[in-house]
Amino acid sequence: MSLLSIRNMDVSIGQYAVLHGLTLDVPEGGVFVLLGRNGAGKTTTLRSIMGLWDRPAGSVTFRGEDISSLHTSDIARKGIAFVPENMGIFGGLTVAENMVLATANGKFDPARLKRVYALFPALEQFWNKQAWSLSGGQKQMLAVARAIIEPRDLILIDEPTKGLAPTIIHGMGEAFKDISQSTTILLVEQNFAFAKSLGRDMAVIDDGQVVHTGSMADFAADTALQDRLLSLSMEEGA
Protein backbone atom coordinates (compact mmCIF):
# COMPACT_ATOMS: atom_id res chain seq x y z
CA MET A 1 0.00 0.00 0.00
CA SER A 2 1.29 3.42 -0.81
CA LEU A 3 1.97 5.97 1.89
CA LEU A 4 0.01 8.71 0.15
CA SER A 5 -2.43 8.45 -2.68
CA ILE A 6 -4.30 11.16 -4.48
CA ARG A 7 -7.37 10.29 -6.52
CA ASN A 8 -9.01 12.48 -9.15
CA MET A 9 -8.07 15.78 -7.62
CA ASP A 10 -9.56 18.89 -9.19
CA VAL A 11 -8.46 22.38 -8.20
CA SER A 12 -9.44 25.54 -9.94
CA ILE A 13 -8.60 29.15 -9.27
CA GLY A 14 -11.42 31.32 -10.51
CA GLN A 15 -12.34 29.84 -13.84
CA TYR A 16 -8.95 28.28 -14.50
CA ALA A 17 -8.55 24.60 -13.77
CA VAL A 18 -5.11 24.08 -12.28
CA LEU A 19 -5.48 20.38 -11.54
CA HIS A 20 -8.00 18.14 -13.19
CA GLY A 21 -8.26 14.55 -12.23
CA LEU A 22 -4.76 14.30 -10.80
CA THR A 23 -4.04 10.83 -9.52
CA LEU A 24 -0.78 9.94 -7.81
CA ASP A 25 0.64 7.26 -5.53
CA VAL A 26 3.65 7.91 -3.35
CA PRO A 27 5.20 4.72 -1.92
CA GLU A 28 6.83 4.70 1.47
CA GLY A 29 10.56 5.41 1.72
CA GLY A 30 13.07 7.32 -0.33
CA VAL A 31 12.64 10.46 -2.37
CA PHE A 32 9.72 10.74 -4.79
CA VAL A 33 10.27 13.51 -7.33
CA LEU A 34 7.53 15.49 -9.04
CA LEU A 35 8.70 16.95 -12.33
CA GLY A 36 6.95 19.14 -14.83
CA ARG A 37 6.99 22.44 -16.63
CA ASN A 38 6.37 25.73 -14.86
CA GLY A 39 2.70 26.11 -14.09
CA ALA A 40 1.97 22.43 -14.61
CA GLY A 41 0.45 22.17 -11.13
CA LYS A 42 3.27 20.79 -8.98
CA THR A 43 3.07 23.40 -6.24
CA THR A 44 -0.71 23.19 -6.29
CA THR A 45 -0.45 19.45 -5.71
CA LEU A 46 1.68 19.93 -2.61
CA ARG A 47 -0.58 22.68 -1.28
CA SER A 48 -3.64 20.51 -1.85
CA ILE A 49 -2.12 17.63 0.11
CA MET A 50 -1.47 20.08 2.92
CA GLY A 51 -5.07 21.28 2.90
CA LEU A 52 -4.16 24.81 1.86
CA TRP A 53 -6.90 25.02 -0.76
CA ASP A 54 -10.54 25.30 0.14
CA ARG A 55 -11.83 21.76 -0.25
CA PRO A 56 -10.58 20.55 -3.61
CA ALA A 57 -12.56 17.79 -5.28
CA GLY A 58 -11.08 14.30 -5.11
CA SER A 59 -9.49 12.42 -2.27
CA VAL A 60 -6.14 12.36 -0.51
CA THR A 61 -5.39 9.24 1.48
CA PHE A 62 -2.51 9.08 3.93
CA ARG A 63 -1.72 5.72 5.50
CA GLY A 64 -5.16 4.55 4.41
CA GLU A 65 -6.98 7.48 5.99
CA ASP A 66 -8.78 10.15 3.98
CA ILE A 67 -7.24 13.47 4.97
CA SER A 68 -8.71 15.64 2.24
CA SER A 69 -11.29 17.28 4.48
CA LEU A 70 -9.00 17.81 7.46
CA HIS A 71 -7.73 21.18 8.57
CA THR A 72 -4.14 21.99 7.62
CA SER A 73 -3.04 21.83 11.25
CA ASP A 74 -4.54 18.36 11.66
CA ILE A 75 -2.87 17.17 8.48
CA ALA A 76 0.42 18.40 9.92
CA ARG A 77 -0.26 16.51 13.14
CA LYS A 78 -0.84 13.32 11.14
CA GLY A 79 2.85 13.44 10.34
CA ILE A 80 3.18 15.48 7.16
CA ALA A 81 5.62 18.38 7.09
CA PHE A 82 5.67 21.12 4.48
CA VAL A 83 8.59 23.16 3.20
CA PRO A 84 7.02 25.68 0.83
CA GLU A 85 8.76 27.28 -2.11
CA ASN A 86 9.18 30.57 -0.22
CA MET A 87 10.46 28.52 2.74
CA GLY A 88 7.92 30.04 5.15
CA ILE A 89 10.58 31.25 7.56
CA PHE A 90 9.39 33.59 10.33
CA GLY A 91 11.91 36.36 9.75
CA GLY A 92 11.08 38.32 12.88
CA LEU A 93 11.70 35.26 15.06
CA THR A 94 15.07 33.82 15.97
CA VAL A 95 16.28 30.53 14.56
CA ALA A 96 15.61 28.97 17.96
CA GLU A 97 12.05 30.32 18.03
CA ASN A 98 11.43 29.03 14.52
CA MET A 99 12.55 25.62 15.65
CA VAL A 100 10.57 25.68 18.89
CA LEU A 101 7.42 26.41 16.93
CA ALA A 102 7.98 23.28 14.89
CA THR A 103 7.97 21.09 17.97
CA ALA A 104 4.69 19.65 19.13
CA ASN A 105 4.91 20.79 22.74
CA GLY A 106 7.72 23.35 22.87
CA LYS A 107 10.41 20.90 23.93
CA PHE A 108 13.24 19.54 21.82
CA ASP A 109 14.04 15.88 21.60
CA PRO A 110 17.82 16.08 22.31
CA ALA A 111 18.67 13.33 19.82
CA ARG A 112 16.74 15.03 17.03
CA LEU A 113 18.22 18.42 17.82
CA LYS A 114 21.67 16.89 17.70
CA ARG A 115 20.88 15.41 14.31
CA VAL A 116 19.72 18.83 13.03
CA TYR A 117 22.94 20.40 14.25
CA ALA A 118 24.92 17.64 12.57
CA LEU A 119 23.09 18.07 9.26
CA PHE A 120 23.11 21.87 9.33
CA PRO A 121 25.92 23.21 11.52
CA ALA A 122 25.14 26.78 10.45
CA LEU A 123 21.87 26.67 12.38
CA GLU A 124 23.66 25.93 15.64
CA GLN A 125 26.04 28.79 14.94
CA PHE A 126 23.22 31.29 14.32
CA TRP A 127 20.82 29.75 16.83
CA ASN A 128 19.89 33.07 18.47
CA LYS A 129 19.97 35.23 15.34
CA GLN A 130 16.84 36.63 13.80
CA ALA A 131 15.91 34.46 10.87
CA TRP A 132 15.66 37.30 8.35
CA SER A 133 19.39 37.87 8.72
CA LEU A 134 20.24 34.35 7.48
CA SER A 135 21.46 33.73 3.94
CA GLY A 136 19.16 32.08 1.40
CA GLY A 137 20.80 28.71 1.89
CA GLN A 138 20.63 28.95 5.68
CA LYS A 139 16.96 29.83 5.49
CA GLN A 140 16.37 26.75 3.40
CA MET A 141 18.27 24.68 5.96
CA LEU A 142 16.09 26.12 8.71
CA ALA A 143 12.95 25.31 6.74
CA VAL A 144 14.06 21.70 6.31
CA ALA A 145 15.25 21.49 9.91
CA ARG A 146 11.78 22.53 11.11
CA ALA A 147 10.34 19.69 9.10
CA ILE A 148 12.49 17.04 10.79
CA ILE A 149 12.63 18.21 14.39
CA GLU A 150 9.57 16.08 15.13
CA PRO A 151 9.16 12.56 13.79
CA ARG A 152 7.32 12.77 10.46
CA ASP A 153 6.28 10.20 7.91
CA LEU A 154 6.27 12.47 4.89
CA ILE A 155 7.92 15.76 4.06
CA LEU A 156 6.68 17.85 1.16
CA ILE A 157 9.47 20.03 -0.22
CA ASP A 158 8.86 22.60 -2.94
CA GLU A 159 11.87 23.57 -5.07
CA PRO A 160 14.51 23.69 -2.35
CA THR A 161 17.39 24.47 -4.74
CA LYS A 162 15.86 27.55 -6.28
CA GLY A 163 18.34 30.38 -6.28
CA LEU A 164 20.98 28.54 -4.26
CA ALA A 165 24.69 28.25 -5.06
CA PRO A 166 25.94 24.85 -6.37
CA THR A 167 27.95 24.00 -3.26
CA ILE A 168 24.95 24.62 -1.04
CA ILE A 169 22.77 22.56 -3.37
CA HIS A 170 25.22 19.71 -2.99
CA GLY A 171 25.06 19.90 0.79
CA MET A 172 21.29 20.03 0.67
CA GLY A 173 21.28 16.89 -1.48
CA GLU A 174 23.41 15.05 1.07
CA ALA A 175 21.04 16.10 3.84
CA PHE A 176 18.02 14.90 1.85
CA LYS A 177 19.68 11.53 1.27
CA ASP A 178 20.23 11.23 4.99
CA ILE A 179 16.68 12.27 5.85
CA SER A 180 15.09 10.02 3.27
CA GLN A 181 16.49 6.95 4.97
CA SER A 182 13.96 7.37 7.72
CA THR A 183 11.34 9.65 6.18
CA THR A 184 9.66 9.73 2.79
CA ILE A 185 10.25 12.95 0.87
CA LEU A 186 7.93 14.21 -1.84
CA LEU A 187 10.10 16.64 -3.75
CA VAL A 188 9.08 19.16 -6.39
CA GLU A 189 12.15 20.06 -8.37
CA GLN A 190 13.11 21.96 -11.52
CA ASN A 191 16.79 21.14 -11.27
CA PHE A 192 16.88 17.80 -13.08
CA ALA A 193 20.43 16.88 -12.12
CA PHE A 194 19.56 17.35 -8.47
CA ALA A 195 16.31 15.44 -8.86
CA LYS A 196 18.02 12.61 -10.68
CA SER A 197 20.66 12.18 -8.00
CA LEU A 198 18.06 11.84 -5.26
CA GLY A 199 14.93 10.34 -6.74
CA ARG A 200 13.93 6.70 -6.40
CA ASP A 201 10.53 7.11 -8.01
CA MET A 202 9.14 9.99 -9.96
CA ALA A 203 6.12 11.37 -11.76
CA VAL A 204 5.70 14.05 -14.39
CA ILE A 205 2.79 16.46 -14.11
CA ASP A 206 1.58 18.33 -17.14
CA ASP A 207 -1.46 20.52 -17.43
CA GLY A 208 -2.84 19.40 -14.07
CA GLN A 209 -2.51 15.68 -14.65
CA VAL A 210 0.07 12.99 -14.07
CA VAL A 211 1.34 12.07 -17.54
CA HIS A 212 4.10 9.68 -16.57
CA THR A 213 5.15 7.79 -13.51
CA GLY A 214 7.92 5.27 -12.93
CA SER A 215 11.36 4.80 -11.50
CA MET A 216 13.84 7.63 -11.70
CA ALA A 217 16.54 5.35 -13.11
CA ASP A 218 14.38 4.44 -16.11
CA PHE A 219 13.33 8.01 -16.72
CA ALA A 220 16.91 9.30 -16.47
CA ALA A 221 17.98 6.78 -19.11
CA ASP A 222 15.24 7.70 -21.58
CA THR A 223 16.28 11.05 -23.05
CA ALA A 224 13.58 10.94 -25.70
CA LEU A 225 10.92 10.71 -23.01
CA GLN A 226 12.54 13.56 -21.11
CA ASP A 227 12.52 15.73 -24.20
CA ARG A 228 8.90 14.96 -24.86
CA LEU A 229 7.63 15.52 -21.33
CA LEU A 230 9.84 18.27 -20.07
CA SER A 231 10.87 19.89 -23.38
CA LEU A 232 13.82 22.18 -22.84
CA SER A 233 12.81 23.63 -19.55
CA MET A 234 15.14 21.39 -17.59
CA GLU A 235 18.62 21.01 -18.88
CA GLU A 236 21.07 18.56 -17.55
CA GLY A 237 23.15 20.12 -14.83
CA ALA A 238 21.25 23.39 -14.80
Binding site: M50, L52, H71, T72, S73, A76, R77, A81, F82, P84, G88, F90, L101, A102, A104, R146
Partner: peptide, 8 residues
Protein backbone atom coordinates in the same frame (compact mmCIF):
# COMPACT_ATOMS: atom_id res chain seq x y z
CA UNK B 1 -0.37 29.49 6.55
CA UNK B 2 2.99 28.27 7.75
CA UNK B 3 1.88 28.25 11.39
CA UNK B 4 -1.02 26.03 10.36
CA UNK B 5 1.31 23.83 8.32
CA UNK B 6 3.33 23.36 11.51
CA UNK B 7 0.24 22.00 13.20
CA UNK B 8 -1.51 24.87 15.00
Amino acid sequence: EMVEALGF
